[in-house]
Amino acid sequence: MDLSEKFGPIRKGLLEFAVLRVIAAEKLYVAEMLQRLAGTEFATQEGTLYPLLSRLRREELVDYEWQESDAGPPRKYYKLTDPGRRALDELAGYWNHLHDTLTRLGN
């Protein structure tokens, strides 16, 4: 059974959760986010991440600020907004609930 293929759509759906989680820890720009995610099951690419971040910003869950960088042009550093933090708590709660349900079902 190919787990990575089987859970592909689920991982895809959880990407938003993973990104919010990564941003919650500290202010990051996109290349750093990709690096954080790279080693994990949620590894992704700019082509996916930029549209996702744009939507999250439209939903006012994240926001960015420009910061000068020592190499190259200024960068957009993303951070969580207050509604974003609440949304992340909700997501985490629901995820735990799902996990509990799956565990309980066997007993």
Partner: peptide
């Protein structure tokens, strides 16, 4: 960079 995915929706991205 990878293919650019529409609206960044979970639904449109759900079929990788």
């Amino acid at each position: 960079m990878g293919a650019v995915e529409g609206a960044g929706d979970a639904e449109s991205a759900a079929d990788p």
